[in-house]
């Protein structure tokens, strides 16, 4: 579900597993902004797990198209 061309909400465009500096796997998300620009952010395993849960996703591809607010809410609501 790619963003509509006129949709200004930043969304997850791509989700990839990447090796972290400390020897654990991390989740690299590419965020596409409304103006066409994009940026990457990295989540640790625990945050990635919560994000998948909140989005009802069982596979990484299902994160694609999710709006940034959802990501933020997941992280803000987490107790840790």
């Amino acid at each position: 579900m790619p963003a509509e061309p006129h949709d200004a909400t930043p969304r997850i465009e791509r989700a990839l597993v990447a090796p972290g500096h400390d020897g654990s796997a991390e989740l690299l998300l590419r965020i596409r902004y409304g103006d066409g620009s994009s940026d990457s952010v990295t989540l640790d395993a625990a945050a990635a797990e919560r994000l998948l849960d909140q989005c009802g996703a069982t596979a990484l591809e299902q994160l694609v198209g999710q709006p940034w607010r959802r990501l933020l809410n997941v992280l803000e609501q987490s107790g840790d």
């Binding site: 020897g23 989740l27 395993a45 990635a48 998948l52 596979a59």
Partner: peptide
């Protein structure tokens, strides 16, 4: 190069590409 290690005690994102495994690990 960077190596990634994991155990079966916690769910590593290495298994995120195989949903059945990832579910089991969790």
């Amino acid at each position: 190069p960077i190596d990634i290690s994991f155990t079966f005690e916690v769910a590593s994102l290495l298994f995120a590409g195989t949903p059945g495994w990832y579910r089991t690990m969790r």
